[in-house]
Amino acid sequence: MPFHVYLLASRRDGTLYLGMTRDLARRVHEHKSKVLPGFSRKYGVDRLVWYEEHQTAMEAIEREKDIKAWRRQWKVNLIEDGNPDWMDLYSLLAR
């Protein structure tokens, strides 16, 4: 099973959340259900707007660290390169 680095948004140009997981569908569902306390629940960040797959945890962790260090506009550009309308990609995930 691959690892994923992902970005959630509260809305277009809204608050962003960057994460890494082994089970993307489950993790996004947790954000949407607001079952866990924390940043995404507090700020209503539950729209999956970008993700990418990695074969190892180390690759995913390194990519997440790199993106966390980016300026906000670079993250917005990353989202808009593949998802210009900031659509919620959660429904596209294989269940």
Rank of each mutant, 00 (worst) to 15 (best):
S33I: 08
T21P: 08
Y6C: 08
K34Q: 15
L48E: 01
D66L: 13
A60H: 08
H54N: 05
R72L: 02
H31G: 15
L24G: 02
H29A: 14
H54T: 02
G19M: 08
A57D: 01
G14F: 04
V5G: 01
L24M: 07
H4S: 13
D23W: 11
G38A: 05
V45R: 09
A25M: 07
D13R: 15
L8F: 01
N77A: 04
K34L: 15
K75L: 06
L78I: 01
R47E: 13
V45E: 07
N77Q: 08
V49K: 11
E53V: 15
K65D: 10
L24D: 04
A60P: 05
H54W: 03
K42Y: 15
Y51L: 06
R41Y: 02
L36S: 09
L18H: 09
L24Q: 03
R11A: 11
G38V: 13
Y51K: 09
R63P: 03
D66M: 10
E30L: 14
K32V: 12
E52Q: 12
Q55D: 15
H54D: 08
Y6L: 08
T15A: 13
E52T: 10
L16Y: 09
S10I: 05
G44M: 05
I67M: 11
L7D: 00
P37C: 06
V28R: 01
V76G: 00
F39W: 09
R41Q: 11
R27F: 08
K75E: 02
I79Y: 02
K42V: 13
